[in-house]
Amino acid sequence: MPSDTNTATSYATASTSTAHDELRRLESGLDALQTVPLTERGAFRRTLDGVLPPVLLLLALVVAWQFYTVIADPRPDLYPGPLDVAASIAELWGDGRLQQAVTTSLSRGGAGFLIAVAIGTPLGLLLAEWRLLRRALGPLLSGLQVLPSVAWVPAAIIWFGLTDATVYFVVLMGAVPSIANGLVSGIDQVPPQLRRVGTVLGASRSQLATLVILPAALPGYLSGLKQGWAFSWRSLMAAEIIAMGGSIGFGLGSMLQQSRELADLPAVLATILIILAVGILVELVVFAPVERRLLRRRGLNPGVHR
């Protein structure tokens, strides 16, 4: 009897181990069938695809503009052509005003944005986790997001005079609500299931926040940061246009206003183009790569083809 049982057992073990191997092969086969390898285009091709269309469109617009000035021959002081604007940019560059304005504005915009991040992030965290505060402050913050921050310029000038404080105040009033709200909506959109899993896995409150909720909220936070930067840049320009002189340095907004006072339309248009270009450049150089990486890692990138 015992020997009988023994053979039966060893037979059973052998059969289960082959059955196991078979199961593994079956599973691997199914896995291979059900997963489609991601085909991602190379970096060069992706850049080409991203850069070429807007550049071509821009070129077409400039050519059309040039044709218009040549064919219709309008008053050059009211409707300058692209060549006039280009000459104006060269002149601004030549006397150093362009470099000075870009440096001043960009450093102020960057510093203002970083301060706004430092204020908006903890504020957003507080709002997301403290329900009472959110009920009280939430609507106000959303309202502030709608209020054009230019509206603060007169008050800021009265409070702080023509100093950098005025500029920073206006920038912060524009950017902080966006950043805080972005983080709040990012946290709101964290799937409740992920929190539950975190709890089930035994995460403490702080572990849940740092290991689950914050990483999960990152895409929402990033879009809040992007919007925050856009608001910073806009508010900065508005503040620089209105508040000139005093100890406020010479920024792009000041250059715009100065050109208007001189009725130098090519310089005005040149400055507008530069403000636009700086905004696009910051988006392309700073935010786009971070966002692409973040979304691609989560399989949320529309640029990846299955």
Binding site: L211, A216, R297, G299
Partner: peptide
Amino acid sequence: VMFQESALFPWLTAGRNVELALKL
């Protein structure tokens, strides 16, 4: 506990998802 949705953390690889459970 295991749920109907896998509820894996999308920002972590399969290995890191398991490692996080080990860490906790």
